[in-house]
Amino acid sequence: MRAVGDLSSAYGGVMVSLGSKLGLYKAMSGAGPLSARELAHRTDCAERYVREWLNAQAAGGYVDYHAVSETYELSPEQAMVLADEDSPVFIPPAWQVPVSMWFDEERTLEAFRTGGGVAWGDHDGRLHCGVAAFYRNGYRGSLVSQWLPALDGVVEKLEAGIAVADVGCGHGHSTVLMAQAFPRSRFHGFDVHAASIDEARQNAADAGVAERARFDVARAVDYPDKQYGLICFFDCLHDLGDPVAAARYAARVLAPGGTVMLVEPFAHDRVEHNLSPVARLYYAASSTICCAHAISEGGELVLGAQAGEAKLAEVFRKAGFTHFRRAAETPFNLILEVRR
């Protein structure tokens, strides 16, 4: 029955994606109870398809069904997850990640059989878009308001003006958020995936911060040395083929008194303490994406997405850092402060 439940969830993910892309959730948000005909009219969709979709949503607990009136309703809590694109818990884009995992199955089978790697840029494009969109809202809800203030003295330096490196920036959402919040600082995003850098530049332009948020293709061991007051690794250190080398390079280009902000997937240090739905998600992604990319980069140390705080601390200790502490945490992330 657990396997059937998981299969039902996988089918449900397709329904979530359809509902998001067709605007069905948005049309239901704040509208009160609606019939299938009313929702179909609001979204310019065919009523028979909408009715079946609504029944699937009701069966999964994603909408409420009122039997007497034969209407369906999206509660405010459900709307936060399914309809509000600015909500920190907006989930529909995350379903693009398992789609990409299925499309990349042949590559993954080959990697398992040969021990070879699969680089980030070799995955189906929905991986890059899904990861960027999913993490964007989590960063938007926490990065400036909670995580940066949890670091000793960093907000004051950002307000005064420092150089910041965002290593493995992807589509640049984290870089843009910081640039919007701290106009006196200058932000530099780096990633090995050229298509993501193109997206990051466009996102910065759209946000009006292109003059103080620049993006370039570079590895974690050769980006320009600007003596950064803050170096950030957002959910990427565990993807690197040689995280110790990346940490050593960060020590070299970090300004005196500077800080490394390390954001990693939440994990305990022992497998038996990581047996949870969130850990299952991360272990699965690690099997097909994180470890695969680290191996493609040489795999000197393949941390995986559930490395845990102790292993991460050891990486930075080997790189010559002496200060390492957990500054904050969420159910999905560890926020770690590192200094020399």
Score class of each variant (00 low, 15 high):
residue 8 S to N: 15
residue 9 S to Y: 11
residue 17 S to M: 13
residue 17 S to T: 15
residue 18 L to C: 11
residue 24 L to W: 15
residue 26 K to E: 15
residue 31 A to S: 14
residue 32 G to F: 12
residue 34 L to M: 13
residue 36 A to R: 08
residue 39 L to C: 11
residue 44 D to W: 14
residue 58 A to W: 14
residue 59 A to R: 12
residue 60 G to V: 05
residue 60 G to T: 09
residue 64 D to I: 06
residue 73 E to N: 02
residue 76 P to I: 06
residue 79 A to N: 02
residue 86 D to C: 09
residue 91 I to E: 08
residue 96 Q to I: 06
residue 98 P to A: 05
residue 102 W to Q: 00
residue 108 T to E: 04
residue 114 T to V: 00
residue 115 G to H: 07
residue 138 G to Y: 13
residue 154 V to F: 04
residue 165 A to L: 09
residue 171 H to W: 15
residue 171 H to D: 07
residue 171 H to S: 14
residue 176 V to L: 05
residue 178 M to L: 13
residue 186 R to S: 12
residue 189 G to Y: 03
residue 190 F to M: 01
residue 200 A to R: 03
residue 205 A to C: 03
residue 207 A to R: 05
residue 207 A to F: 02
residue 217 V to E: 10
residue 218 A to D: 00
residue 230 L to G: 09
residue 232 C to V: 15
residue 250 A to I: 04
residue 253 V to G: 11
residue 255 A to Q: 08
residue 256 P to A: 06
residue 262 L to A: 00
residue 269 D to P: 03
residue 271 V to G: 00
residue 296 S to T: 06
residue 296 S to I: 04
residue 296 S to P: 08
residue 297 E to R: 02
residue 300 E to T: 13
residue 301 L to E: 15
residue 302 V to H: 11
residue 310 A to P: 02
residue 314 E to I: 01
residue 316 F to Q: 04
residue 316 F to C: 01
residue 318 K to L: 11
residue 319 A to N: 05
residue 321 F to N: 08
residue 322 T to S: 14
residue 335 I to D: 11
